[in-house]
Amino acid sequence: MKIVVFGTGGVGGYFGARLAQSGCDVTFVARGRHYAAIKAHGLRIESPLGNFALEAPRIVEDISTVQQADLVVVAVKLWDTDEAARSLAPLVSRGAAVVSFQNGVQKDETLGKHLPRESIIGGVCYIASVISSPGVITHSGTMQKLVFGEYDGSRSARVQAFHAACEKAGITAEIADDIERLIWEKYVFLVGLSGATATIRRPIGAIRTHARTRAFLFDVMHEVVAVGRAKGVRLPADFAGNRLAFCDTLPEGMTSSMHHDLENGNRLELPWLSGGVASMGEALNVPTPRNRTIADILELSADGRVSG
């Protein structure tokens, strides 16, 4: 497969590098200092699964310079999704499929405003990784999993081909029969992890071992489940308990990308995470007091600087 990784951050950089290292045809799209560092010195991955470097990866600043692709992996920040989708239209018109491993549950709806619905594959990822410095992706822990699938549940040739590429690269990967439900399952965990770590400003280990912060984490996730069920997603009523047990299996030092962004003064994906839950809950008349509080607490830092 000809794969384009659109957004070479913690997610796109890590998984794209694994695919490229295994021999896949991968083109990276990056910008700014990160692009310049990769262009000059290559892309370095630091991981408990093994450090490695791509000395001269194929990388561009503008996706319009890419003429052909079988699959585009979208891994830009959520606020860039509209612009990214518009720029992908020429590649999609020439046959490219698109799979987003971004955060949230509204990403594919946004892509679908600009791209044919049949071009979009649903996807979720599980990894803790960040750009630790320009040209360097640091992976925490050993979890590195991609789950993807067609929205109609079919096992198409394109999802099977991508699954084979992931397996060759040593990436844990699954083809999903009900990708919408799995996207929401990830969202429950993601909103809990991001909201709790960013507001409490501690990693998951400390949060899950204290009774009150553990209860807070559970309540945040329970609200997401309630909103999803109100939207018709097939989530079990007790799914927040399932995700809390999953949090107990994580490395104690694990945190979230939103916590990382907060500490580094970067823009936050808050409107699509706890803020998104609060907005959807309000529209559906589902109470979301914990997520509304998280959104309110972090609002002054949401654009990457302290306002006021």
Results as ranks from 00 to 15, higher is better:
Ser119His: 06
Val220Glu: 07
Ala36Ile: 02
Met280Phe: 15
Asp238Leu: 06
Glu174Trp: 00
Ala17Gly: 00
Ser257Lys: 04
Gln21Ser: 03
Ile175Met: 02
Leu71Asn: 07
Val11Pro: 01
Gly42Leu: 04
Val98Arg: 08
His163Glu: 12
Met258Phe: 10
Asp303Phe: 12
Ala283Phe: 10
Leu78Arg: 10
Glu269Arg: 09
Gln102Ala: 08
Tyr187Thr: 14
Ser194Tyr: 02
Glu180Ile: 09
Glu269Phe: 09
Glu223Asp: 10
Leu250Asn: 11
Ile179Trp: 01
Ile45Trp: 00
Phe6Ile: 05
Thr213Leu: 03
Glu269His: 11
Val159Arg: 01
Leu78Lys: 08
Pro48Arg: 04
Arg33Leu: 14
Asn266Phe: 12
Phe148Asp: 04
Val66Asn: 08
Gly122Tyr: 05
Ile207Ala: 06
Thr172Gly: 05
Gly265Cys: 10
Ser274Gln: 13
Glu263Val: 11
Ile183Ser: 03
Asp177Glu: 12
His163Ser: 07
Ile297Phe: 07
Lys231Phe: 05
Met221Pro: 07
Arg86Pro: 07
Leu78Tyr: 06
Arg18Lys: 11
Val159Met: 03
Gly232Tyr: 04
Ser119Tyr: 01
Lys113Trp: 11
Ala30Asp: 02
Gly123Ala: 04
Glu282Ser: 15
Asp70Gly: 10
Ala157Arg: 09
Val225Trp: 03
Gly228Val: 05
Asp70Arg: 05
Lys77Val: 01
Ala240Pro: 03
Val124Leu: 11
Gly12Asp: 08
His210Gln: 13
Ala36Met: 05
Arg290Val: 14
Gly195Ile: 06
Val66Arg: 07
Phe148Ile: 10
Ala36Pro: 03
Cys247Ile: 01
Glu174Ile: 01
Gly275Arg: 12
Met143Cys: 11
Ala36Trp: 04
Ser156Phe: 02
Ala97Ile: 02
Ala176Met: 11
Asp82Asn: 11
Ile137Glu: 01
Pro90Ile: 09
Glu282Gly: 14
Arg155Leu: 14
